[in-house]
């Protein structure tokens, strides 16, 4: 990175670029969450199942995110791993109203955590217990126990309940994620 870029970053004019991976089962609301962060003029009104992946950019208060919004359909999940190596953080979206497939989500999470590209990295993982507005949804605490999140010891993680349609709970989660990533980058510099 050139001198001007460093200067600009120091002055806070230009934000640091990081990339995050958005994964989760199909119909859990990944694209809707990303859509929420986009500036209102480029918002997409009609969200269709993603095939493959989409790249989106959005900004939080300290960082500029490049989000790889991956497809959650069963036959594309094996493609997630191609993007593990370069990401700085992971957003794992859970459909908290779909108790039946919670075990499938847990399986996918275990596979992700065991992957050689992620296993030994202290990479922050943010969980969204999405669709909190639905009546049959479970609480974030119940969700974390169903997913066995307490087993994760070597990575910082955080779960927050969210409603991607209204945007409730999303910014809280992303703030946590940006703090974590910033810390990680700081500590790596030292």
């Amino acid at each position: 990175m050139g001198f001007f870029d460093t200067l600009a970053q120091w002055l806070g004019v230009k934000k640091r670029e990081v990339s995050v991976l958005v994964v989760g089962l199909d119909n859990s609301g990944k694209s809707t969450i990303i859509n929420h962060f986009k500036p209102s003029e480029s918002k997409n009104h009609d969200i269709v199942p993603t095939v493959g992946f989409n790249v989106e950019r959005f900004k939080s208060k300290a960082l500029a995110f490049t989000a790889f919004d991956m497809s959650g359909q069963g036959r594309y999940r094996n493609l997630w791993e191609h993007y593990y190596r370069e990401c700085h953080g992971i957003i794992f979206v859970i459909d908290s109203s779909d108790k039946l497939r919670m075990v499938v989500a847990k399986d996918e999470l275990d596979l992700l955590l065991q992957h050689p590209d992620l296993k030994n990295r202290r990479i922050p993982i943010l969980f969204f217990a999405n669709k909190m507005d639905l009546r049959e949804s479970v609480s974030s605490v119940k969700c974390s126990s169903l997913m066995g999140l307490e087993q994760i010891r070597d990575k910082p993680w955080h779960i927050c309940a969210s409603n991607a349609v209204t945007g409730e709970g999303l910014s809280e989660g992303v703030d946590w994620l940006s703090d974590q990533i910033k810390d990680l980058i700081e500590s790596r510099k030292k």
Partner: peptide, 12 residues
């Protein structure tokens, strides 16, 4: 293989 991965990006 798996070139289908870019479908959504191209559709966008």
């Amino acid at each position: 293989q798996d070139v289908i991965i870019v479908t959504s990006s191209l559709m966008k």
